[in-house]
Structure formats: structure tokens, C-alpha cells
Write a protein that binds this DNA or RNA. Structure first.
Ligand SMILES: [Mn+2]
Ligand SMILES: [Mn+2]
Ligand SMILES: [Zn+2]
Ligand SMILES: [Zn+2]
Lengths: 148, 148
DNA sequence: AGCTTAAATGCAACAGTGTTGCGATTAGGG
DNA sequence: CCCTAATCGCAACACTGTTGCATTTAAGCT
């Protein structure tokens, strides 16, 4: 996974530096999305010290290469799980535990584009995040209500 | 339009204050979305001085009453144009002039929910903004390319 | 393995954004 | 015209994000 991203960096002519590796690894490990300062704190706990400016610049680069995404709803970052290809990447985010699923669906895009045409709007890309509960958190929530 | 919002404030037991009126009017006039500090600057040009803390608190209130929305992509605010009812409100934002259309579409929601169920995800609400060109800006862009 | 150098990082300083507590003001009911 | 809870303004602060420039480093080349 991290290897794939490293290969993208290389083939695009970017250096594979220690800070870039470290940010990749942190994003890979994380179950939830991370803010730039979250990343700095997590790395510091591992004895790795990165300047926040560096983290910002690395995240910018990763996003431009589609190795990571900046979530709209929170501004936090996640590692892309669909590869670095172009296209519309959508998210389902659990608002309880923060875990998320990335997916792409051509039909949804078609539908949205069709709707937009009615308004004479020329869509270039879709930004889409659904908020809700993952199966785990839904089950927990449900059990609580039964016991209450 | 502003009148409708004022009525919502009254029926919900909130005071109709001068700052709240002023923010409502600015949002109503604006063609594009506004940041809290944009609102402060615009009002100041009209000789109206609001503390930024006040503006933040007013925008929080308006959003909680569905009188305004905070755009995901920019964090800027727009007046809701579909009334204060619950439901999924989507946007088409022109990335050139900033104007936007708000809309709601039950079929899109159904489709997204159906997709989520396959992942055992329980959707509570959709966050959706399409980015592209409005008809005006599309025409301008097109003409430019012809002349070039 | 040691040079070389463009690319990347670190640092300092700063600007912008957003939050909290508390005292002063005000809308709106009696 | 009072009264008072709701709202606002102010001060102080924390967090987030940006820029310019000096220093370090990855990686290509001997
Ligand atoms: Mn992706
Ligand atoms: Mn709305
Ligand atoms: Zn969850
Ligand atoms: Zn436009």
C-alpha cells in the first residue's frame, strides 16, 4: 500500500524522503481521518519530529497526486484507497467512530450530471460524503436502546 | 425572503435583533457564498459594525434552524433557498463566479442510500456539492476558446 | 564511496480563523 | 415604562495555515 504510493512518487519525479514516508505510514495506519496537527502529534509520540509546514506541503502534494484526500466535512485527510486514478471518489463517514469507506459509482455521477443539465449547469466534478453509522456503531446504538 | 426567516426566529422563540437582521440581509443580497469575515467587511462598508464573535454565533444559529448552510468545499455561508424544512439540500457551485443553485432530489438520495446498504452503512444525511460552470460562465469560456 | 545540485525541509515570523468567559446592552413580555 | 433572560461586545487566547529564506538531503553522476 505504502509501496504503491512510493512508486507513484518515484515515477512522477518526486523524491522519496523520510518525512514523506512517515506521513504515508501514519495515514496508512490510521483508522480515521487526521488533521495536519494530528499527524504531527502522532509522529511525535513515535519520536519523529516534523515541522508543521512540512506536513502541510506533503499533504498538498499527496492530494495533487490523488494519494490522499481532504475530506470536505472536516478538512481532515485520509489515504486514498482506490488508487491514484482520476475520477469521482465518494465517502461514507461514520460520525461516531470516524471510520470511513471510499467508493466510486458511475451511475450516481450520471444521475447528478443529468439533474445538473436541467439547470444548464456544466458539472466538472462531484463532492460527496454521506454521514451516518457504520455497521458496528449501528449495532451498539441499537443494543443500548434495547437495554434502556 | 428575509421576512420568512424572521418569522422562523419568532416562532422558535429567538429574538429578532439588529445584528441578526443585518446578517440576514447581507446573505440575501449576496450572489455568492460569504465567510464570517466577509460578512463583517461587507457590513462595515455600510457603516454597520458587528463583532466577529457575534457573526459566528448568528451563523451557528441560522444553520441550526436551516436558514443558512455552511458549504463543505469552502466553509462559507449561504442563505437557504428551499425553506427551513428538514431534508437533504444539495448544491451546484460555479467555481468561476461563485454563484450557486440549491436543490433537493429524492431519487439521488434513494440511490445513495441503496449503495450504502451494500456496505452495511446506515446513512443519516448526504453532503453533496457539484463543482462546475454555470451557464453564463460556460458560454464565456466557450467564446474565448473560439477567438483564440 | 564521494561530489554535485535541485528539491525538500526547518525555522521564524506572521496572518487569518475560531473559541471562551464575562460584563454590558437590548428585545420583548407584563 | 420596567424587568429580565437573551443577546451582544470585548479581551484574551488557541488553533490553523502561509511565506521567505537558510539549511539539509535524495539521488544521479562520476
Ligand atoms: Mn481516492
Ligand atoms: Mn437549504
Ligand atoms: Zn462507526
Ligand atoms: Zn459562473
Amino acid at each position: 500500500m505504502v509501496q504503491d504510493s512510493i512508486r507513484v512518487l518515484q515515477t512522477q519525479g518526486y523524491k522519496v524522503t523520510k518525512p514523506r514516508r512517515q506521513v504515508l505510514e501514519i495515514l496508512e495506519e490510521a483508522q480515521e481521518s487526521l488533521s495536519p496537527y494530528d499527524i504531527q502529534r502522532l509522529l511525535r509520540r513515535q519520536g519523529k519530529h516534523l515541522n508543521h509546514v512540512t506536513i502541510y506541503r506533503i499533504l498538498d502534494l499527496f492530494c495533487s497526486l490523488n494519494l490522499a484526500h481532504k475530506l470536505l466535512s472536516t478538512g481532515r485527510f485520509v489515504k486514498c484507497s482506490l488508487g491514484d486514478k482520476e475520477g469521482c471518489h465518494r465517502f461514507m463517514v461514520c460520525h461516531r467512530c470516524g471510520t470511513l469507506q471510499e467508493f466510486a459509482d458511475e451511475r450516481l455521477c450520471q444521475e447528478e450530471n443529468g439533474f445538473a443539465r436541467n439547470f444548464d449547469f456544466h458539472t466538472e466534478y462531484h463532492l460527496s460524503e454521506s454521514s451516518g453509522l457504520c455497521s458496528n456503531c449501528y449495532r451498539k446504538q441499537h443494543q443500548k436502546q434495547e437495554n434502556a
